[in-house]
Simulated assay, not measured.
Amino acid sequence: MSNNVAPNAISYESDLEHDHLLTEAVSGEDGTAELYLENPRKLACVLGETLKMLLSLPAEGCPCPASRQAPLQSSVTSGKSH
């Protein structure tokens, strides 16, 4: 199931110490761009909205255990951080 929130994987390799995932390029602005460094509130808003969008996606097929999802969803709904 794809929600189009991540780039397509091109290659994955693993050894005893490291995992390497090569993906397609993504569009958008880097969080370290001057725009955000000069206005950290804007960056916080962008990150918050993105997290809210990610947490609104269906959990089907998510590798994260359900026990971790409930506290995260509660934080987004209430606007509080844990």
Rank of each mutant, 00 (worst) to 15 (best):
S2H: 05
S2V: 01
S2E: 07
N3R: 13
V5D: 05
N8F: 08
A9P: 03
I10P: 05
S11N: 12
S11I: 05
Y12I: 08
E13N: 12
E13D: 13
E13C: 10
S14L: 07
S14E: 12
D15N: 13
D15W: 05
L16I: 04
E17F: 14
E17D: 12
E17W: 12
H18D: 08
H18V: 03
L22F: 08
T23C: 11
T23M: 13
T23R: 05
E24K: 05
E24W: 06
E24Q: 10
A25H: 14
S27E: 11
E29A: 03
E29M: 10
G31C: 15
G31Q: 09
G31M: 15
T32R: 12
A33V: 03
E34C: 01
E34D: 08
E34M: 02
L35N: 01
Y36K: 04
Y36H: 01
L37W: 04
L37D: 02
N39T: 04
P40I: 05
R41E: 14
K42W: 07
L43K: 10
L43S: 02
L43C: 02
C45Q: 01
V46G: 02
L47S: 08
L47N: 06
G48N: 06
E49L: 14
T50I: 04
L51C: 10
L51H: 12
K52C: 09
K52F: 12
M53R: 15
L54F: 10
L54N: 04
L54V: 07
S56D: 13
S56T: 06
A59S: 11
C62P: 00
P63H: 01
C64I: 11
C64T: 02
P65Q: 03
S67L: 10
S67A: 07
S67F: 08
R68V: 00
R68Q: 07
Q69M: 13
A70V: 01
A70Q: 05
P71F: 06
P71T: 01
P71S: 07
P71C: 03
L72E: 01
Q73E: 12
V76W: 13
S78E: 09
S78T: 11
S78L: 07
G79I: 05
G79E: 04
G79Q: 06
G79C: 03
K80I: 08
K80M: 15
K80P: 02
S81Q: 10
S81T: 06
S81L: 11
H82Y: 12
